[in-house]
Write a protein that binds this DNA or RNA. Structure first.
Lengths: 333, 333
DNA sequence: ACTCAGTATGACAGCGATGTCATAACGACG
DNA sequence: CGTCGTTATGACATCGCTGTCATACTGAGT
């Protein structure tokens, strides 16, 4: 599946359809466009001619001529096999669809280069706005898109080195909540299965935990495991942690992937004394399993991002807005 | 969020930018398009003028003039907050992206009217192909789109009253597998928490079960509960079933939503004797919970659908192809 | 001083549709 | 029979941009 150039099937034009139907350009246009003032007979002939030729309206020309504007928004996320991203995408779609705006989606697979390629591609094509969950650590390049008039909104992760709208969770508070919850439950050997070290969301969560745990004099730095963005890595880390001489009595999962890995590993070793578990994000199965989590409203994040994008599209000079969505502790079991 | 007409912000044109920058139309075009042969100084002036005016390239005009073709594929699913759909979407995106084809997504919420609106909308705009998980029970209307030259591919549910490519699971075999598995485990009170009665997938699954169970002389019709497309309804049904005088000893969940509801309910009444559980589809949490399921490869379905769409786009007259993806029993616990 | 290759710019046509306006054909009406 | 409103059709300009080609300028090489 390499990047084969798209072979473009020969397209026929309205003029050809008109000729074949023996009518003028405009009449053909009317027939196909469902306008009034075309006799049934003519319309039939035109439709038949169009079908014969496999005619398909050139939307670019159509939009241009009619002065309409193809509004479309691009959404770049990591990978929406991950429910976090797909929930976000669903919410954005929801917010955007009633306005007859199209949503074009793309997955960066958390690759910085891929993300930038996608962003440029979407921008070049049609997108009037971009909502991105960025894998980049520096967003200065996005200013090029902004100056082209494209509204850029960052979701889940704030923009770095760039003035742009954003929506993020209050991750630091989330970290505090998680840590405090475990502290209250009497834990003092607390592990963290974290995400990529460079992720601001993760850094904030960790910082929030640090505030609380350090203040309580808890030793925990040795139980931090970074860079587990996938369930597999997370599982491996859990395995290691539980083999320690002095294993953690509680484990915090930095995101829904690591929570999945953690849960898998614990399920596999059912019988052994299991540590307490708390996760970030709230995938649907966390509820079923009765896992306590710290989470914000992902759908609300999506809606907010879409709203910001729409606002900026209609008013380019409005002040930058940074929406912060609270995180809450959801106690279960 | 009613269907507010999109307020169109006053747009400036390339001509205005050029005038403001004191250059010709073409030079402005070059500067903005990143072409060679523009002095740095000029480029700067043009960029500044563009920024001042909030200029944004009219992509319709651009595409038209350059003869490029905005190739894009539309994907209509129920709702990709449902992992089944989002996995499918991710796979389609995967297959399509390397060919620099855009994927425009839309959720029908399983509403027939909504689906048709979306299909028309996507078709009118740009989509050269449509991949749809349809909520309709009659697809004759889609022939209009086909005759406009749009490749239409049905995923998960076959086309009715229409010749079109499709990819579906072997749901009947799936039904047989599920039933046989429970039979082998010695069950004879087997309930089914089903989906919408009209869904062909569900009907097939049920028919497959019926083949096996009827042949074995098992009475089970009274334990069928239809129309549980969401987890909530499913949960309610499970509650009812378990309250029966002679409750089922095994419950089959017709899709991942009903499996979720079922699992929730069972978790809630932990302690009581729980029935055996088997689900259709294989959401990530089924593995964690050790739930036996009957499932096919959703990603493969997405890839196959994308491939069919691409094939039909490049060769409109090829014979209709119906891909059937096997379902397998995944034993757990 | 004279080419020549490379750089920078602009004039102009044309992409494929739709909007506007003009015109033709057709009863109906007084 | 002339007038008028309605229906059906076509000619033509136009949407905003990019491709092509022509032109002008620059400095290096001889």
């Amino acid at each position: 599946m390499a990047a084969t150039p798209q072979e473009i099937p020969a397209r026929s034009t309205l003029a050809q359809v008109a000729e074949r139907a023996g009518v003028s350009l405009k009449t053909a246009s009317r027939a196909l466009g469902g306008e009034a003032y075309v006799s049934e007979e003519t319309r039939g002939r035109v439709l038949a001619a169009a079908a014969d030729l496999g005619y398909q309206r050139n939307s670019a020309a159509s939009l241009l001529a009619s002065g309409r504007l193809a509004v479309s928004i691009g959404l770049i996320t990591g990978d929406f096999a991950n429910p976090f991203y797909s929930t976000l995408a669903a919410a954005v779609e929801d917010e955007v669809r009633p306005r007859t705006i199209h949503l074009s989606v793309a997955n960066s697979r958390e690759s910085a280069e891929q993300e930038w390629l996608l962003a440029q591609d979407l921008a070049d094509r049609q997108a009037q706005a971009l909502i991105v969950v960025s894998a980049l650590q520096d967003h200065a390049a996005y200013s090029r898109l902004q100056s082209r008039g494209i509204a850029v909104v960052f979701a889940d992760r704030t923009a770095m080195n760039l003035d742009a709208d954003s929506v993020v969770f209050d991750n630091r508070e989330g970290g505090r909540l998680a840590a405090q919850h475990l502290l209250d439950a009497g834990h003092s050997r607390i592990a963290l299965i974290g995400d990529y070290e460079w992720l601001p969301t993760y850094r904030e969560r960790k910082a929030g935990m640090a505030e609380v745990l350090d203040a309580a004099g808890v030793q925990w730095r040795d139980l931090i495991r970074n860079d587990a963005h996938g369930a597999l890595e997370a599982r491996q880390f859990v395995r290691e942690l539980l083999e320690l001489e002095d294993p953690p009595t509680a484990v915090v999962a930095g995101n829904n992937r690591s929570l999945l890995g953690l849960t898998q590993e614990l399920a596999a070793r059912k019988g052994h004394a299991a540590p307490a578990v708390i996760g970030f994000d709230d995938p649907e199965w966390a509820q079923v399993l009765g896992i306590t989590v710290v989470a914000g409203d992902v759908a609300e994040m999506g809606r907010a991002a879409a709203r910001l994008a729409l606002l900026r599209m209609s008013e380019r000079s409005r002040p930058i807005e940074n929406v912060v969505i609270p995180m809450r502790l959801i106690r279960r079991d």
